[in-house]
Simulated scan of single mutants.
Amino acid sequence: MPLDSAAVAGGLRVRLPVPAVGAVPHSEFTLYSVARRGSPSVTLRAGQDLLIPIFPGSSGTLGVPEFQRWEVSFTRGGPSLAISSLGPLSSAIMIPWALIPKEGSDTLQVRLFSTRSFRVDAPPASGSAPRLVTAIRADANLEWSVLIVP
């Protein structure tokens, strides 16, 4: 779901329904999404590295993610290139000028995909009651249009 600036600043508050088998661990939580800092339209001088500031999001009340991955892809209308990594995002993404295609449109399209997975285990169940787990995944897709000028 698209988030407005209030949801980005205040976090996304989630309350899960109680399933028939009983309450799940962490049925209420707050998660802070990966978000753009600044405009989706950016100007870049030819020859300079592109630095895109972002809010990398945070786990809120969930604790440390068990898995994190991000990928930034970019194109000038031809083949797309990508930089990806396992682990958390930093507060800015840097695309070196050497990797930006030199031919094509004067506009570079940049896309960021980020995913984080959380697992919250319930305390050990007594007797034969099933042990419940809450699995939560947060994905973000952001786009920028970068005008390359001389």
Rank of each mutant, 00 (worst) to 15 (best):
M1P: 13
P2T: 12
L3W: 14
D4W: 10
A7C: 05
V8Q: 00
G11R: 06
L12D: 09
L12N: 12
L12K: 15
R13W: 08
V14R: 05
R15F: 02
L16H: 06
P17R: 09
V18L: 12
V18G: 04
V18N: 09
A20G: 11
G22P: 01
G22D: 03
A23K: 15
V24I: 13
V24P: 03
H26Y: 10
H26E: 11
H26D: 07
S27H: 15
S27C: 11
F29I: 04
Y32R: 12
S33Y: 04
A35K: 07
A35T: 06
R36T: 07
G38C: 10
G38N: 08
G38P: 10
S39M: 11
P40I: 11
S41T: 15
T43D: 00
T43Y: 02
T43H: 02
L44V: 03
L44Q: 03
R45G: 03
G47C: 09
Q48N: 09
Q48T: 07
Q48D: 07
I52L: 15
P53N: 10
I54A: 01
F55W: 06
F55G: 11
S58R: 13
G60Q: 12
T61E: 12
L62I: 12
G63N: 05
E66H: 13
F67T: 01
Q68N: 06
R69H: 10
E71L: 09
E71H: 05
V72R: 03
V72T: 09
T75M: 09
T75D: 07
G77K: 00
G77S: 01
G77W: 00
G78S: 14
G78I: 07
S80N: 03
L81Y: 14
S84E: 07
S84L: 07
S84I: 02
S85V: 02
L86G: 03
L86K: 10
L86Y: 05
L86A: 05
G87C: 08
L89F: 05
S90E: 08
S91Q: 13
A92Y: 12
I95N: 07
I95Q: 04
A98S: 15
E103H: 09
S105A: 15
D106Q: 04
T107M: 09
L108Q: 03
F113V: 11
R116T: 04
R116C: 03
F118H: 06
R119Q: 07
R119I: 13
P123Q: 05
S128R: 12
A129Y: 07
A129K: 11
P130R: 02
P130G: 01
R131Q: 11
R131A: 11
V133K: 00
V133N: 01
T134H: 06
T134N: 08
A138I: 02
D139A: 15
D139F: 10
A140W: 05
A140Y: 04
N141H: 15
L142T: 08
W144F: 14
W144S: 05
L147G: 08
I148H: 02
I148P: 02
P150R: 10
